[in-house]
């Protein structure tokens, strides 16, 4: 499993955040996705054999949301 924390741009409304969270959660290979609106970030955990960072970026882009920086994220068992 890969844990990543993505810093998002253009995340302007809480509704967009909720939509993005739902859409990324629906990606095959995504174990968990959580958008933190106030922080403008998204924590994802996915299976790198099925899903890639590139695919998540593409999905965000389709929804009008940019991915500025990606850093390894906190493991979900914290």
């Amino acid at each position: 499993m890969t844990n990543e924390m993505m810093m998002l741009t253009n995340l302007n409304c809480p509704t967009c955040a909720a939509k993005l969270e739902k859409a990324t959660q629906a990606l095959p290979g995504m174990k968990s996705a959580r958008v933190i609106f106030g922080a403008g970030s998204m924590n994802v955990e996915y299976d790198p054999n099925v899903l890639s960072q590139e695919k998540i970026r593409t999905l965000c882009k389709q929804m009008g949301i940019g991915v500025a920086t990606v850093v390894p994220g906190p493991s979900s068992d914290i």
């Binding site: 924390m5 933190i36 609106f37 106030g38």
Partner: peptide, 13 residues
């Protein structure tokens, strides 16, 4: 430092 970053992000939630 990583922990600090995650904590700050969580705190916004």
């Amino acid at each position: 430092f990583s922990q600090l970053v995650y904590l700050v992000a969580e705190a916004q939630e």
